[in-house]
């Protein structure tokens, strides 16, 4: 899976989870810029990503998932 495909999948999940258009998310989107991305939102987001990309994300990796782009990095590493 290319980084482009990962980012597109990520956009789709973000759009459903936070109820916003896909193009409203940028590489820097983070809990600081998106009020819905709170701790509970993060729990749900992780579950949605695990389903979308068919993998499990251990707690150790979740702490690095601080922005849209950093999530892409974690996923890219796991899917490589």
């Amino acid at each position: 899976m290319t980084r482009g495909e990962i980012d597109q999948g990520l956009r789709e999940v973000f759009a459903d989870m936070f109820d916003k258009p896909q193009d409203s998310f940028t590489a820097d989107t983070s809990p600081d810029t998106l009020s819905e991305w709170d701790s509970l939102g993060h729990i749900r987001l992780v579950a949605a990503l695990e389903e979308r990309f068919d993998l499990s994300i251990p707690p150790e990796d979740q702490v690095e998932m601080l922005t849209f782009d950093l999530i892409g990095d974690v996923l890219a590493e796991k899917l490589a």
């Binding site: 789709e12 999940v13 459903d16 989870m17 109820d19 749900r44 579950a47 949605a48 389903e51 979308r52």
Partner: peptide, 11 residues
């Protein structure tokens, strides 16, 4: 099915 679809549908 799944978390994202359900979140979207629930809204």
């Amino acid at each position: 099915t799944g978390t994202a679809a359900t979140q979207f549908a629930a809204k």
